[in-house]
Amino acid sequence: MNYQQLLVETNNNILYITINRPQKLNALNKEVLAELSVAVANAQEDQEVKGILITGAGEKAFVAGADISEFQNYNLDEGKQLAKDGQEKVFNAIENSTKPVIAAINGFALGGGLELAMACHIRIASENAKLGLPEVTLGLIPGYGGTQRLAQLVGKGNAFEMIFTADMIAAEKALQLGLVNHVVPFANLLEKANKILDKIKLRAPRALASAVKAVNAGFNPQLNGYEVEIDEFGRCFDTQDFKEGVTAFLEKRKANFQGN
């Protein structure tokens, strides 16, 4: 695909996705969401990709929110469809990605931007990052899974406070709340993300995919997370990666996983 709003490249088995609208603080519009959907979906089928890194262009913003001008005149049905399409095609797709996804938060992550980061499996923030869900100042609530994922990550009380007040919080506060995994100087942001991804690349791809499925099942009220874990654990025994991992362990060498 010829991306217009994203910079997309694969390097050393990592797919780098940069939202490239710095003049708009990388705000999410329909085109960005459509391109994100394609990039994430393609990564699932690409055997070369072992991990995904999502960040924003420039030094000011990861994603400063959604492009409000696109939906300012929507009615009830159009608003519901907007949320449904975004959740199913982009945010849920990222959360359920079989390839681990890291958000490198390089500045403002507000509204849809924070929702995008929360859909990723791991979040790393630069020291200058500011995070928040300001939707109630527009007469809205988060619509891309933000009410659910924020409460899962920081607890119900903290989620209510952030959503009710619409306040931004600093990176260090986000770290204390468990909203991000690490906070580093801006200059070291991608380096830190790459170090984590370099470790992930060495692990069994099929096992990583099973781990994503099992962990996410624990937050799905329609599923029994323990049962999903048992099923995925069993599936691992039917993979070449399991045989390679055990053989390597017994032979006291590093495993060479092929993802099958």
Rank of each mutant, 00 (worst) to 15 (best):
Met1Trp: 12
Met1Asn: 10
Leu6Trp: 00
Leu6Gln: 03
Leu6Tyr: 03
Glu9Met: 07
Glu9Gln: 13
Asn12Phe: 09
Asn13Gly: 03
Asn13Tyr: 01
Ile19Arg: 04
Gln23His: 12
Lys24Gly: 05
Leu28Met: 11
Asn29Phe: 03
Ser37Asn: 11
Asn42Tyr: 09
Asp46Asn: 10
Asp46Leu: 03
Glu48Tyr: 01
Lys50Ala: 07
Lys50Asp: 08
Gly51Phe: 14
Phe71Gly: 01
Phe71His: 05
Tyr74Phe: 05
Tyr74Cys: 00
Gln81Thr: 05
Ala83Asp: 15
Lys84His: 10
Glu88Thr: 02
Ala93Gly: 07
Thr98Tyr: 07
Thr98Gly: 13
Lys99Leu: 01
Pro100Glu: 13
Ile102Asn: 04
Ala104Gln: 15
Gly107Ala: 11
Phe108Ala: 00
Ala109Asp: 05
Gly111Tyr: 04
Gly112Gln: 04
Glu115Ser: 03
Arg123Ala: 13
Ala125Val: 06
Asn128Trp: 11
Leu131Gln: 07
Leu133Phe: 00
Thr137Asp: 07
Tyr144Cys: 00
Tyr144Trp: 12
Gly145Glu: 12
Gly145Thr: 09
Ala151Val: 02
Gln152Ala: 06
Val154Arg: 03
Gly155Met: 05
Lys156Ile: 05
Gly157Arg: 07
Phe160Cys: 08
Ala170Asp: 15
Lys173Gln: 15
Leu177Glu: 14
Pro185Trp: 07
Asn188Ala: 12
Asn188Ile: 05
Lys201Ala: 10
Leu202Tyr: 01
Arg206Ser: 00
Ala207Cys: 00
Lys213Asp: 04
Lys213Leu: 00
Ala217Asn: 01
Phe219Met: 00
Asn220Lys: 00
Gln222Asp: 14
Gln222His: 12
Tyr226Thr: 06
Lys243Glu: 14
Glu244Trp: 06
Gly245Trp: 05
Ala248Asn: 09
Leu250Trp: 10
Leu250Ala: 08
Arg253Trp: 08
Arg253Tyr: 08
Arg253Pro: 08
Asn260Asp: 12
